[in-house]
Write a protein that binds this DNA or RNA. Structure first.
Length: 898
RNA sequence: GGGCGCUUAGCUCAGUUGGUUAGAGCGCUUCGUUUACACCGAAGAAGUCGGGGGUUCGAGUCCCUCAGCGCCCACCA
């Protein structure tokens, strides 16, 4: 027998239990019965070289919660773990490392070597993040761990690309894309963020060849050099007559047409628009409509190109100033006004993204988007919270081609080989040696890699073996829940649903649960620059994993951001300690019982009113918690159990159990059984939230129970571990519920009485330790209270020998009066009582009662009785009658002492 | 321009079929080590549930409207 220490020491528990669970194979669906219904979650793969942050902590907590509950419900729970190669992020990290440690750039060591070094880096640091997920208690099946660039997943990527290509859904073309000059790669629309920043709107005159000019405004003068038209609205009286004339690009004096297009907003700026198809998405569209040439005045480094004439080689922003100065000298400028710009910046790195025409690969996502829309509309996929359905629809209905090529080295190489001889593109499943069209061996693979999200889109099925029809794929796909942050709804969730529809002809999961962002305690976004990052590892070091998990789980609601405040975590650490200490009390008593007469005695269970009350409450809580779990209200479910455990079980039942245990025999036996049962059920309910403290505590309970052999064992016996124990279901029979109900109600009354006595004592300054006499005039309740005499005395600190419980009305002289419906309690405090003060107190109480009676009388005289449900009306009527009883007592008492 | 969320006690937040006198934790006040726990217990103070209007017997909860804060999508030079 090991003595339980006074304080729960999470540090000595967590790692040991995690290893024990894993060694026993409990994270694997195979250790459940073979016919068990699967429950599957694919992990949102963290960046392979990333470090644990609160976003990870949040998803681990939520997903592990679902997985653990499903496992306890007897399902074959499978949580598939893995990591993402994270193209840009990882490449940048390795580049930085090479520069720092060896002072070499990736260009210097070459592509092949760079990739080799990146793999090395991945092998070295790749398990940091998964170790940290373990630390959170994640019960993933690590034997099934995957990596987006492992062999199997690479094959899935190849398969997907080739199929899309053959369906004509992947194509290559010269389009205006978001170009990141620093990263030297294209990025997708989703990877661009727009920020409002102060800037200028430049007004100037566009000279016409025939003489005269058109005034034009722009925010980016440097793009003037790439203009290929000036557009006006065809119905604009000011300018319509100029359509068809020729304008001259300032400084360069290149000839461009004046065109008419209804896109032009006559009210904005000067009402005339310069058109730069090479550097603006709208102009690109207009250019296509009018078959305008594209002049690219910038290089991929965002410096000016040869087409910029005298400005070639200048940085884009330097060119802006230089050109404007030259135009000013030429008398073309009008004025410059302050203007708020919406500047596109790269999500990674923050540099200004340049719209640039380049040759890229795209996916035509429209057909797949239709599948994704239908999946949600048909109800086959449910999004929680459902307001995100609107966001989903909006994005998918207006979906645009997805730019999937990246000019990076780290990632899945685009599986297209160009033939030097005939120009044919070979797009095969296996690497080719010759052109499939002409057989030439002179073929070269496309240098680009795929957007990281391309492989992520396949994740739920690629991790289970797709494209092969593996046993795992057959058994575990489609998965059940996709739990992730709402910020990657488009990046990831939508694309998975699209890909699954096309490649597996199925939905990838039936439920999407979206969590919010974790902010700091003051609601600020956590960031290194703000210095307010709450490191989950440090939090776990200080407060324990369970405290962090419980805080994240009960402090958040689906789709809403949460603030993580350390005092909350501390409080939940205290909760873990509370669990521990309640268990400690029960374990101690079981151990004590092992050497008493009740050992091995098979008493019949004889639940007292208090037992019946706590059992009925527990049943209620189990029912409520299960309803909340089933509707994905995990936070509320956790709070309900927390409140029940602390406020009902620990504060009341455990206290009064001390009295019942002292009574020995059947009462003590029953009390021990009830204590064990309620604790056991609570540990089960809380295990998905706080896996460590519940398991450790439960093992103690099991050990003590088995060695004491006192009380009733769990219905299903004692399984090896809580992690695989049965999930609680409401256990009372209808008959029991009916029998327990009156006792439960009576006990609630007793609780009120105790509270009232305590409050009065405190108010009157009676020393907390002093036992005082009391007279309870209780009418019909007297008999019940008589049975609860020791509990009442113990909880309210009454002198049991001087406690009078009677059905007869008596009126002591100098006594404080507490009135609760049909029960009146006198505390004869002869020496202490101040009659005037007591009169004032009773008068105040009477006024209070009058006010409430008034309110209820009015309520019950109106339409309420006809229109409200009978049960609600009945409840109000009962309340009124209790208030009236109290009123009579208080006013009577007031008359007596006056 | 379109859409969404939030606004409840000093602070951080719960409150999902509308139904007691609106809850918790922290903080604050007073008391207390009685056979688990001071990472504790008992008692208490503290809220016109953002403003206004409406539906209803009844609204923190549903509808309309206004205001403040925040987010997403689109990207008019």
């Amino acid at each position: 027998m090991t003595e339980m220490p006074k304080t729960y020491d999470f540090a000595s528990v967590e790692e040991r239990l995690y290893q024990w669970w894993e060694e026993n194979g409990w994270f694997k669906p195979e250790t459940r019965p073979p016919d068990a219904q699967p429950f599957v979650i694919s992990i949102p793969p963290p960046n392979v070289t990333g470090e644990l942050h609160q976003g990870h902590a949040m998803f681990v907590s939520l997903e592990d919660l679902m997985i653990r509950r499903a496992r306890m419900q007897g399902r074959a729970a499978l949580w598939v773990p893995g990591t993402d190669h994270a193209g840009i992020a990882t490449q940048l990290q390795v580049e930085k490392m090479l520069l720092r440690t060896e002072e070499v750039t990736r260009e210097e060591i070459g592509r092949e070597e760079f990739i080799r070094r990146t793999w090395q880096w991945k092998e070295k640091y790749g398990n940091y993040i998964t170790q940290q997920l373990r630390r959170m208690g994640a019960s993933c099946d690590w034997d099934r761990e995957r990596f987006t660039m492992d062999e199997g997943l690479s094959r899935a990527v190849r398969e997907a690309f080739v199929r899309l290509y053959r369906l004509g859904l992947i194509y290559q073309g010269e389009y205006l894309v978001n170009w990141s000059p620093g990263l030297q790669t294209a990025v997708s629309d989703l990877e661009v963020e727009y920020n409002e920043e102060p800037g200028y709107l430049y007004y100037f005159n566009y000279p016409l060849q025939e003489g005269g000019h058109i005034p034009v405004a722009t925010t980016r003068p440097e793009t003037i050099l790439g203009d290929t038209a000036v557009a006006v609205h065809p119905e604009d009286e000011r300018y319509a007559h100029l359509i068809g004339q020729t304008a001259l690009v300032p400084i360069l004096r290149r000839e461009i047409p004046v065109i008419g297009d209804t896109y032009v907003d006559r009210a904005f700026g000067t009402g005339a628009l310069k058109i730069t198809p090479g550097h603006d998405p709208n102009d690109f569209e207009i250019g296509r409509r009018h078959h305008l040439p594209i002049v690219n005045v910038m290089t991929k480094k965002a410096t000016m190109s040869e087409a910029a004439g005298p400005y070639a080689g200048l940085d884009r922003f330097v060119c802006r100033e230089r050109l404007w100065a030259d135009m000013q000298a030429a008398g073309l400028t009008i004025r410059v006004v302050d203007y708020t710009l919406n500047v596109p910046r790269s999500q990674r790195g923050g540099e200004v993204v340049e719209p640039l025409v380049s040759r890229q690969w795209f996916v035509n996502t429209e057909p797949m988007a239709k599948l994704a829309l239908a999946a949600v509309h048909s109800g086959r996929i449910r999004i929680i919270p459902d307001r995100f359905v609107k966001v989903w629809d909006n994005w998918l209905q207006n979906i645009r081609p997805w730019c999937i090529s990246r000019q990076l080295w780290w990632g899945h190489r685009i599986p297209v080989w160009y033939c030097a001889a005939c120009g044919h593109k070979t797009v095969p499943l296996a690497d080719p040696t010759t052109c499939e069209a002409c057989g030439s061996p002179h073929i070269e693979q496309d240098p680009d890699v795929l957007d990281t999200w391309f492989s992520s889109a396949l994740w739920p099925f690629s991790t289970l073996g797709w494209p092969d029809q593996t046993p795992d794929l057959a058994r575990f796909y489609p998965t059940d829940v996709m739990e992730t942050g709402y910020d990657i709804l488009f990046f990831w969730v939508a694309r998975m649903v699209m890909a699954a529809g096309l490649f597996t002809n199925d939905i990838p999961f039936h439920t999407v649960y979206l969590h919010g962002l974790v902010r700091d305690g003051d609601g600020q976004k956590m960031s290194k620059s703000a210095g307010n990052v709450v490191d989950p590892l440090k939090v776990m070091d200080e407060y324990g994993t369970d405290a962090l998990r419980f805080t994240l789980l009960t402090g958040s609601t689906p789709g809403n951001d949460m603030n993580l405040a350390l005092p909350k975590v501390a409080n939940n650490r205290n909760f873990a300690n509370k669990l521990w200490n309640v268990a400690r009390f029960i374990v101690n008593n079981l151990d004590k019982a092992a050497s008493t007469a009740i050992r091995n005695t098979q008493y019949a269970l004889r639940p007292t009113p208090a037992d019946q009350w706590i059992l009925a409450r527990l049943d209620e809580v189990i029912t409520t918690a299960n309803r909340l779990f089933d509707t994905y209200q995990f936070g509320e479910a956790g709070r309900q159990v927390h409140d029940f455990f602390w406020a009902d079980f620990a504060d009341w039942y455990v206290e009064l159990a001390k009295v019942q245990l002292a009574q020995a025999g059947a009462t003590a036996y029953t009390t021990l059984s009830v204590l064990r049962y309620v604790l056991d059920q609570c540990l089960r309910l809380l295990h998905p939230y706080m896996p460590f403290v519940t398991e450790e505590t439960w093992q103690q309970l099991k050990r003590a129970f088995q060695s004491a052999a006192v009380g009733i064992a769990p219905a299903g016996g004692w399984p090896d571990a809580l992690i695989i124990a049965d999930w609680p279901a409401a256990g009372l029979t209808a008959a029991e519920r009916e029998t327990y109900a009156p006792a439960a109600v009576a006990f609630e009354r007793l609780r009120e009485l105790v509270r009232a006595i305590r409050a009065t004592r405190a108010e009157q300054g009676v020393e907390a330790g002093r036992s005082i006499p009391a007279i309870l005039v209780a009418g019909e309740t007297a008999a019940f209270l008589e049975t609860q005499r020791p509990i009442l005395a113990f909880l309210a600190r009454l002198d049991e020998k001087a406690l009078v419980i009677t059905g007869q009305a008596t009126t002591p002289d100098k006594a404080l009066t507490i009135s609760l419906g049909d029960v009146i309690c006198y505390l004869p405090l002869a020496g202490l009582m101040d009659v005037e003060k007591e009169k004032a107190r009773l008068s105040k109480e009477l006024a209070d009662l009058d006010r409430q009676i008034e309110r209820l009388t009015t309520l019950l005289a109106g339409d309420f009785t006809q229109k409200a449900p009978p049960a609600v009306v009945e409840r109000e009527r009962e309340k009124l009658s209790r208030l009236q009883a109290s009123q009579a007592q208080v006013s009577g008492r007031l008359a007596e002492i006056s």
